[in-house]
Computed example of a mutant assay.
Amino acid sequence: MSSAQSAASILMIGAHDTGKSNYLARLWLALRRGNGLLGIPEDPEHIEYVEELITELRSGRYVGRTDNDGEARDFEGRAIIGAGPQKGAFVEVLVPDVAGELWETASGEREVERQWVERIRQCRGALLFLRFGSKHHVDALNWVTSAAAMKAPIAKLVAKPSQVATQIFLTDMINVLETNLGKAIPGVTPRVAVIVAGWDSIPAEGREGGPAAYVDQIYPMFGGRMLDEGRLAIKPFGTSITGGDLRTAGHRDEYLKSNADQEGYVVYQANDGTLTQSEDMTVPAAWAAGIDLPETD
């Protein structure tokens, strides 16, 4: 991306309770701090919504459900690239935060509202969120172990017909993005940053191989789809918003005693294959916007 390219829109996608709002709050704090891949030269307008999210994090609470009836509450501002070969160039970052039900409906009905098709076509990249610990996670049906359940009355089985298995939902979203993302922007390879939220709450053995290995283990169908990139570039990132699980005994107290504005980290595989941990929470958004990640030392 050259300095002449001043527009890069990034779309946040995910079912509800997958960490979109928590990441948006932490992203804003990192942008304002300005010592990462992305910073902001001045405060954007209309950030009251994001400030409300930040207040929750500063109080030692994860941001709860946000309800906006499918309407976008856009977080936008002019960011400056702070590292790498594009250092000093500006990029307009637009992050519409939309209720998860909109995307769940799109998956269940295999159709996206036209207004969102047009918006996706204008976006340079996307952040696709998942969180295995979500209470809304839906397991894929195991036809062997579910034999007993299949004997239940059909009405009971379809009591929640809108519930699509999580990995099918994620695969559907990649298909939607491959069809539409960046189609209105000539000459770009659209990027999808897959965000594994709540990375710190995953057992240590699940984190050993990094985000890609974790996704492949938990969501094998979706993991396979990530490898089949097509016209997209897809990269998984693990994110910890608070540097540890606030529900773990003792960590919330430590978090409240610390500088909560500077907590959190990102885990990803560097260009040379090294599993890397960074305190720069802008890394996934910057990569999705087309900014190359720095080489490891």
Rank of each mutant, 00 (worst) to 15 (best):
Q115C: 07
G230E: 01
R114H: 11
I202D: 09
R225E: 14
M150C: 06
T179R: 15
W199A: 07
A197F: 02
C123T: 10
E178C: 07
R124E: 09
E205M: 09
G209E: 09
I218P: 03
D139S: 14
L141R: 12
R119A: 09
W199H: 03
W116N: 02
W143D: 08
A159M: 10
W199F: 09
R231N: 15
P236D: 10
G210K: 04
H137D: 11
V158E: 13
N175V: 09
P161E: 08
I218D: 01
K151T: 15
P220Q: 03
H136T: 11
S134L: 11
S134T: 02
A147D: 11
V117P: 01
D216Q: 14
L157P: 04
N175W: 00
G238K: 04
M226N: 04
S134P: 09
P203G: 06
F237T: 03
G206L: 02
S201H: 00
M221F: 13
E113M: 11
G125T: 05
A147F: 12
R207D: 06
L181R: 03
P153Y: 06
P236F: 07
F129N: 10
V176C: 09
P211W: 05
R119V: 00
A197M: 10
R119L: 12
A193G: 03
G224S: 11
G206H: 06
Q167C: 05
Q122K: 14
D216C: 01
Q167S: 09
L227G: 15
L157G: 13
F132A: 12
L127I: 04
V192F: 03
G187F: 10
R121K: 15
V138C: 05
E178W: 03
N142F: 09
F169W: 11
S146A: 15
E229Q: 15
G210Y: 04
Y214C: 08
I218L: 13
I174E: 00
K135A: 14
A155W: 03
H137P: 01
R114A: 12
R114E: 14
A149I: 11
L227M: 13
I195C: 09
I120L: 14
S146G: 14
L128C: 02
G238S: 05
A204T: 11
L130N: 02
C123Q: 11
I202G: 08
W116I: 01
Y214P: 01
F237M: 07
P236W: 03
M150Q: 13
C123A: 15
V164A: 07
K135M: 11
E113W: 03
K235L: 12
V158P: 00
R124S: 13
I218W: 06
Q122D: 15
